Simulated scan of single mutants.
Amino acid sequence: MPLSNEQRNQLKTMGHDLPAMIVTGDGVNEGVIAELDRALADHELVKIEISSEDRAERAAAISELCRAGRAELVQTIGKQALIYRKSPQPDKQLSNIHRSG
């Protein structure tokens, strides 16, 4: 389900000061996808950094990560992207959504 503008703005605010949890320079591979899936399950809102200098490669990698992680892209700024996937049973100690609220 796509995010509303209001939801997107709230998530941008929550994610502003988050550090990048996943940094990749080798593109998208099984290890990166597995780590993203774990991070989304734990934290729901995750900032990733794609180190590629090529804008098209970064956009393709972000799109692939969102698809593979069944997540919504909240925002991209430069080499960083903020990605969200609602957890059915969030851990209130780990979830960036619950900790910032």
Score class of each variant (00 low, 15 high):
residue 48 I to C: 15
residue 21 M to V: 11
residue 59 A to C: 01
residue 39 A to R: 04
residue 4 S to H: 04
residue 42 D to L: 15
residue 7 Q to S: 11
residue 40 L to Y: 04
residue 47 K to W: 13
residue 16 H to E: 08
residue 8 R to N: 10
residue 33 I to W: 00
residue 58 R to A: 00
residue 6 E to M: 02
residue 63 S to A: 12
residue 16 H to W: 10
residue 19 P to C: 00
residue 29 N to M: 03
residue 44 E to V: 07
residue 29 N to D: 14
residue 58 R to Y: 00
residue 18 L to F: 11
residue 10 Q to I: 06
residue 11 L to P: 05
residue 39 A to T: 04
residue 57 E to W: 01
residue 47 K to M: 15
residue 30 E to G: 03
residue 27 G to F: 05
residue 29 N to W: 03
residue 19 P to E: 06
residue 21 M to E: 08
residue 3 L to V: 11
residue 37 D to K: 13
residue 34 A to C: 01
residue 34 A to Q: 04
residue 34 A to W: 03
residue 29 N to R: 02
residue 30 E to Q: 07
residue 49 E to W: 09
residue 26 D to E: 14
residue 24 T to G: 07
residue 56 A to T: 06
residue 51 S to A: 13
residue 12 K to L: 08
residue 42 D to M: 14
residue 21 M to I: 05
residue 26 D to C: 09
residue 15 G to K: 02
residue 50 I to L: 12
residue 20 A to F: 06
residue 54 D to P: 04
residue 58 R to Q: 02
residue 28 V to G: 08
residue 56 A to I: 08
residue 57 E to L: 10
residue 6 E to G: 12
residue 51 S to T: 05
residue 17 D to N: 14
residue 27 G to N: 00
residue 40 L to I: 07
residue 31 G to W: 08
residue 6 E to D: 11
residue 7 Q to W: 05
residue 26 D to M: 10
residue 22 I to V: 11
residue 54 D to G: 03
residue 27 G to M: 05
residue 15 G to D: 05
residue 24 T to R: 12
residue 5 N to T: 11
residue 51 S to L: 15
residue 41 A to M: 12
residue 7 Q to K: 06
residue 43 H to L: 11
residue 33 I to A: 11
residue 9 N to E: 04
residue 48 I to N: 11
residue 45 L to R: 02
residue 6 E to I: 13
residue 36 L to W: 00
residue 57 E to A: 15
residue 39 A to P: 06
residue 44 E to F: 06
residue 43 H to F: 10
residue 44 E to N: 09
residue 35 E to T: 13
residue 14 M to L: 08
residue 37 D to M: 06
residue 50 I to Q: 06
residue 61 A to S: 14
residue 39 A to I: 10
residue 58 R to T: 01
residue 6 E to C: 10
